[in-house]
């Protein structure tokens, strides 16, 4: 008797005893050779799983179950508003990052030959006139922001009028209100960045609003606007809010909002 252990996985011996045609033999030998080196079997299993997943029969949705699609299809755009505002946020984030390469939040005198133009104003003017696709980029950023805000408002109305905020979704409703407020703050801080007349006087309104908060008004005005009239500190702070603080906060809150929707499921139309 041999002292050597019997090899249960001697694939060559297995190949010999199988009595295969040359084509089959070559195929199997190649497969074994590749599998020993690349663990092909794992990837084949993955593919197999994918194949069965793709060919699975889809479960019936609520509206299919009750044959409501013919009555409900025209409401579906309203049900997609939440997802749409997320996508608009992504569009705004990408175009905003590209704009950030060229924008500078400085209220110092700018280089453009316009009376009273600051650096911030002239970088925006440069983006719009000199930069390739810059005009479109700013337009895209602005429209994505406007459309996102509109979509968020309409999304809230849809949720309200279909009663989708009811138990067990109260917490997500409140998170949604926080997100809506943050979206408006996002819009406001961005509105101030070009530092044109509208931006300056909107900043003035903001300062006055925070000053009218009882007790802590002056403190809030100094914290948020860096003083009691719009200027370099205001622009700097709005820039940091817009490109640093709010993106992190809003992205996190959106993730929580969507995570809750995923966990709690969709409140479909009844």
């Amino acid at each position: 008797m041999s002292v050597e252990r019997k090899d249960d996985h001697d694939h060559d011996a297995w190949l010999e005893e199988k009595d295969l045609t040359p084509i089959e033999h070559t195929f199997l030998a190649t497969l074994v050779w590749l599998d020993k080196r690349l663990r092909l079997v794992d990837y084949l299993e993955l593919l197999e799983t994918l194949y069965y997943r793709v060919n699975l029969q889809m479960p019936k949705s609520h509206t299919e179950q009750y044959n409501l699609d013919n009555k409900f299809w025209y409401w579906y755009p309203l049900y997609s508003l939440g997802f749409f505002s997320t996508l608009a946020y992504v569009v705004a984030a990408i175009s905003g990052a590209l704009l950030g390469f060229y924008y500078s939040p400085s209220a110092a005198a700018g280089a453009v030959d316009i009376e009273g133009a600051t650096v911030a104003y002239s970088t925006v003017a440069t983006i719009m006139t000199d930069l390739n696709f810059g005009f479109f980029l700013r337009s895209l950023h602005r429209w994505a922001a406007q459309v996102m805000t509109a979509a968020v408002f309409l999304h809230m109305l849809r949720v309200y009028f279909t009663g989708a905020y009811k138990e067990p979704r109260e917490v997500n409703w409140i998170i949604g209100i926080v997100l809506l407020s943050l979206t408006m703050v996002f819009g406001y801080t961005g509105y101030l960045l070009p530092w044109d007349q509208l931006a300056f006087w909107a900043g003035q309104i903001g300062v006055e609003m925070s000053l009218s908060i009882p007790l802590i008004g002056e403190w809030v005005a100094q914290l948020v606007f860096g003083g009691f009239s719009p200027g370099q500190p205001t622009l700097q702070r709005m820039y940091i809010f817009h490109v640093f603080l709010l993106p992190f906060v809003v992205t996190t809150v959106i993730a929580i909002h969507l995570g809750l929707v995923w966990m709690q499921g969709i409140a479909e139309p009844h």
Binding site: G116, A117, Y121, R138, S139, P194, D196, Q197, A199, F200
Partner: peptide, 8 residues
Amino acid sequence: PPHLGAPA
């Protein structure tokens, strides 16, 4: 495309 007003 959006409008850019007069500077502040």
